[in-house]
Amino acid sequence: MVTPTHVLPLVDITRLQSARREDRLAVADELDRACVDAGFLYVTGAQIDTALRDRVVARAKAYFAQDQAAKMASYIGLSENHSGYVPVGEEQFGSGTPDLKEAYDINVDYAHAHGRRPLLGPNLWPPMPGFREDVQAWYQHLTGIGHQLFRAFALALGLAESHFDAHLRHPPSQLRLIHYPHDADAQDRPGIGAHTDYECFTLLHVTAPGLQVVDKQGNWVDVPLVDGALIMNVGDMMEILSNGRYLATKHRVKKVAQERYSFPLFFSCDYDHVIAPLVVGPAGQQASHYRPIKGGEHLFNQTAQTFAYLKARIARGELVLNDPVPLDSFGQREAGARP
């Protein structure tokens, strides 16, 4: 049930595995309330494999402990599908300060690009025994949970439970293994790295505090860890799909002294799926608040405005973005304007 004693709502999704539709509807109702009220929530459930999660944490620690030359051999700018190593300073949200983190980005790992779309194709993998196997297993495990959540969102929005199934065949969903190095002299500055996620929703495992979200009063609120729980949040595309019922919540990672690892998986629909409001109110009485966008194109456009190697390609004229939405476009309407 939704537990009000936490900073964020907590929803147990175990019953999404139930054969009983009423069980799944009950979870969908709790998910709906949590997303309307906060946009961020804790997710627990019997389906979460904590042993596999811990193996992935160990793999990430071993990878990031390598020297810089070894890590740069898998630099993301060398990949076909925006996968691989992301060095410190590569990411810069808009004109803000570059994020002080390093990462390894993993996609679905298609053998071939589907129609030569950006973000779809073979992953760039480091030559580390066991890394690919465990990370892929975690990706596939979370993807299964994500599909259950897509079905719950469909129920919550009054759609057929299988509504999203046909749009999850070749999604550019991405898993990030993120490392925030130890910084004994860390001094936080408000607003660094503040953003909404571009996709439908995110599932996150994190090893240390540091995440902050904006509450309804506009204040930054620390999100403490809850043992065994994943953190979930609504992204830009689900804001559009819900016609603003769920708002993408701005969040950031404040500077903390301890070493920190973060593992978000960002869930998208298929690259060419058009993201448009699915609900417009009773008998069409409520207008759509959003213009449709091409899901994969939106994701790539936002990514290209953040990563240095893609910005460089744009500056050289090698890459032209088609009508990109400004980075800070979502989660801005007042709560009273929600449907």
Rank of each mutant, 00 (worst) to 15 (best):
residue 74 S to I: 01
residue 44 T to E: 13
residue 48 I to G: 00
residue 82 H to K: 10
residue 46 A to W: 00
residue 85 Y to N: 01
residue 56 V to Q: 07
residue 54 D to E: 15
residue 77 G to V: 10
residue 52 L to R: 00
residue 65 A to E: 07
residue 59 R to P: 09
residue 75 Y to T: 02
residue 38 A to V: 11
residue 79 S to F: 14
residue 84 G to M: 03
residue 59 R to H: 11
residue 67 D to R: 04
residue 50 T to N: 07
residue 40 F to C: 03
residue 74 S to G: 05
residue 45 G to C: 07
residue 51 A to C: 00
residue 71 K to P: 06
residue 63 Y to K: 12
residue 68 Q to A: 12
residue 73 A to L: 09
residue 57 V to Y: 13
residue 64 F to V: 03
residue 50 T to K: 08
residue 61 K to E: 15
residue 65 A to R: 06
residue 54 D to R: 09
residue 57 V to A: 15
residue 51 A to Y: 04
residue 57 V to W: 15
residue 56 V to H: 10
residue 48 I to Q: 05
residue 62 A to T: 04
residue 66 Q to N: 04
residue 40 F to K: 00
residue 74 S to H: 12
residue 61 K to V: 06
residue 48 I to W: 10
residue 80 E to M: 11
residue 85 Y to M: 08
residue 79 S to W: 15
residue 81 N to A: 10
residue 84 G to K: 06
residue 36 V to L: 14
residue 79 S to K: 14
residue 40 F to N: 01
residue 49 D to Q: 01
residue 60 A to C: 08
residue 55 R to F: 11
residue 43 V to C: 01
residue 63 Y to V: 12
residue 73 A to F: 11
residue 59 R to M: 13
residue 38 A to G: 10
residue 85 Y to Q: 04
residue 48 I to R: 08
residue 64 F to D: 09
residue 68 Q to G: 01
residue 79 S to C: 13
residue 72 M to H: 13
residue 41 L to T: 07
residue 59 R to F: 10
residue 84 G to Y: 08
residue 64 F to M: 14
residue 77 G to M: 09
residue 72 M to A: 09
residue 64 F to K: 09
residue 57 V to H: 15
residue 57 V to E: 12
residue 60 A to R: 03
residue 75 Y to W: 14
residue 77 G to Q: 05
residue 76 I to Y: 00
residue 74 S to C: 15
residue 59 R to C: 10
residue 77 G to S: 05
residue 49 D to H: 06
residue 37 D to M: 06
residue 63 Y to C: 10
residue 84 G to I: 01
residue 75 Y to K: 04
residue 77 G to F: 06
residue 65 A to M: 01
residue 61 K to Y: 03
residue 61 K to H: 01
residue 64 F to G: 07
residue 38 A to F: 08
residue 50 T to D: 10
residue 73 A to S: 08
residue 84 G to T: 04
residue 62 A to V: 02
residue 65 A to W: 10
residue 71 K to L: 14
residue 75 Y to F: 11
residue 40 F to L: 07
residue 56 V to E: 11
residue 83 S to D: 02
residue 77 G to D: 08
residue 40 F to G: 04
residue 81 N to L: 00
residue 69 A to G: 12
residue 61 K to Q: 14
residue 43 V to Y: 02
residue 72 M to W: 07
residue 40 F to R: 02
residue 65 A to G: 02
residue 45 G to Y: 10
residue 76 I to F: 02
residue 41 L to M: 15
residue 40 F to P: 06
residue 75 Y to H: 15
residue 74 S to K: 10
residue 48 I to K: 04
residue 69 A to N: 11
residue 85 Y to K: 02
residue 48 I to N: 07
residue 41 L to G: 05
residue 62 A to Y: 01
residue 43 V to S: 02
residue 85 Y to D: 07
residue 65 A to K: 00
residue 39 G to E: 12
residue 57 V to K: 15
residue 78 L to M: 03
residue 70 A to V: 06
residue 48 I to T: 03
residue 72 M to E: 11
residue 37 D to Y: 03
residue 43 V to T: 03
residue 37 D to E: 14
residue 45 G to V: 09
residue 66 Q to C: 05
residue 50 T to S: 12
